[in-house]
Amino acid sequence: MKKNNSFTIRKLTLLIPGIVVAILTLQSCQEDETTELTRDEEIAITENATFSEDVSDEDIEIANSAEIEAGIQEPASRESSSEKCYATTWDAATRILTIDFGEGCVGPYGRQRRGKIIVSYGEEGNYYVADRTITFDNYFVNGNQITGELYVEKAVINEEGFYENNYTVNYTILFNGGTTFTLNGSRKREWIAGVLDDNFANNVFRITGSLTGISTRGISWSHQIVEPIIADFNCRSEGNFLYTQGIKEISYSNSRRKRTRTVDYGDGICDRSYTIAINNDLITITAE
């Protein structure tokens, strides 16, 4: 029987545009998966998230130290050993502490800071027995602007006998290159060493919790601490990295793909490095 070639050709003509669209769509999806999340971007997200966490924990500790120096904390004889390069103002009526770095100076933890940290206290007591909201007024760290707030709940004594409190992070960093990086979530920190010691440089905290955010390229990311992070201010005061121990899993995704990597902060030794595992590679990162 003779085949109807014209009918076959017509069917192919109708199918070809759909095939072309499908191929182009597949190529676009493949390009999205391979170009949106490069290795450099994965490393950059980890570095920016760690820098943001580090600075936010420093800001809380600066607020604690400044409270002592402003004379609103008991026992009044306790003093901070951090290098002071700011002025403190305590308004008892409004229960607001202002920490003013002025036009800029290199002070706590060796970073260049300028602008103001504003600490607003709840009605119950001071320091660890009061809720605090930390905000920022034209505040810069190493040339990067910090906005947002940190909400630190009053401390309680846990079953191990340590002071602990939860704190909420709502942080945006505008990098001096014009890009932004956000950090949001809640964490718990336990004060495991340095309590009522002579200075804040001896403080050590154990941190757990999770955070989310948006990277400088608009990529969503999140992390979960799977082994508690140790924040050792002895190390930070000596010019080393704040986090000396702990593991977190960091995930980032576009609309079609999610990747999870492991970040390891070490085994308790003061240094300036940590590692991120990407596939079979272990990459060492030097902290800022």
Rank of each mutant, 00 (worst) to 15 (best):
Y167E: 10
Y151F: 14
R256E: 15
I214E: 09
T38R: 09
L12Y: 13
T133D: 08
G239H: 11
E79Q: 13
Q224R: 06
E288M: 01
E36K: 15
C270Q: 00
I276S: 02
I247P: 05
L196D: 15
H223S: 03
N64Q: 13
S253P: 06
E249P: 14
S273R: 14
L211H: 01
V204Q: 09
E83M: 13
R261I: 09
G266S: 00
R113Q: 03
N165E: 07
I118V: 14
Y265P: 04
Y121H: 11
R236E: 08
P228K: 00
W221R: 02
E153A: 06
E153D: 06
S65Y: 03
E74M: 12
M1H: 15
T50K: 07
I225L: 01
N142R: 09
N240K: 14
T133M: 11
T135P: 01
I276F: 03
Y109M: 08
W221V: 05
G71E: 12
E58F: 05
S220A: 14
D281L: 08
K84F: 08
G209D: 06
E42W: 08
N199Q: 09
Y274H: 01
P17T: 06
A277Q: 12
R217M: 07
T208P: 01
E69F: 15
D100Q: 05
S251P: 10
N254C: 04
T286N: 01
S81Y: 11
Q27K: 10
Q145S: 10
S210R: 02
T179P: 10
L97H: 04
K258C: 10
S255C: 13
V169G: 05
G115F: 04
D54A: 06
I219Q: 11
L15A: 09
C235H: 05
A231L: 00
R261H: 14
Y121Q: 03
T94M: 04
G218W: 01
T13S: 13
R257I: 15
N4V: 07
A193W: 02
D137A: 11
D197N: 11
N240L: 14
N280F: 10
E164C: 00
Y171R: 04
K116M: 13
R189S: 01
I60L: 07
R114I: 07
L14H: 09
N280T: 12
A87H: 10
A93Y: 11
F205D: 01
A87E: 15
L183Q: 03
F181R: 05
V55W: 00
T13Y: 10
G194S: 02
D197K: 03
G218K: 02
I230E: 02
S65K: 07
G18W: 05
G115C: 03
G268Y: 03
F51R: 00
N5A: 10
V21Q: 09
D137F: 13
N202Y: 06
S220N: 08
C270H: 06
N279Q: 09
R217W: 08
S273A: 13
K116A: 13
S210Q: 03
E153F: 00
A130H: 00
E123R: 13
A49Y: 00
R187G: 08
G213E: 00
A44G: 03
E67D: 12
L242N: 00
S65F: 02
R206N: 08
G246T: 04
G246L: 05
W191E: 07
Q245T: 05
V20C: 01
G246C: 02
L150F: 03
Q245P: 06
R217H: 15
A287Y: 02
V129R: 10
S77M: 10
Y243F: 05
